[in-house]
Amino acid sequence: MALDQSFVGRSYPPTAPYEVGREKIREFAEAVGDPNPVYTDPAAAGALGHPDVIAPPTFAFAITYKAAGAVVSDPELGLNYSRVVHGDQRFAYTRPVRAGDRLSVTSTIETIKSLAGNDVIDIRGEVHDAAGEHVVTAWTKLVARAAEAGEA
């Protein structure tokens, strides 16, 4: 079923701030197997000019995807979230995410398409810190695969 095109351009209110903790960054870095001390040692981060440990480049997705989830599960949009796979992912950074940040995401639906029966939706998540300064923008393409014949 085609999605409602009137959702293109729709923005959702900024999310409640996500507070980035040093130990969460450490947990994430260990989970991706990355031993770079800039993620765990404030002195190592400081030597590179960062005021605190920074997060790996893809860490921001954990925050923006949660915000995108609230968008795509909007019942008015009609997306079958249980059949969604990740198509593309892109980030543009003003600066790295770092410990102590309080980050808020503003999500916007950029495009909605139907390709070979699949619903394709592009969502932009703009991440700002507590001072309102831009940190990173994440673009996420989600593909809701068409149900196959005989499949519920």
Binding site: V38, L48, G49, P57, G87, D88, R90, A92, R95, P96
Partner: peptide, 14 residues
């Protein structure tokens, strides 16, 4: 790079 903070953009297609 040494410093992951030197990345300005990063994108992939799965």
């Amino acid at each position: 790079l040494g410093d992951p903070g030197a990345i300005e953009e990063y994108g992939v297609r799965f």
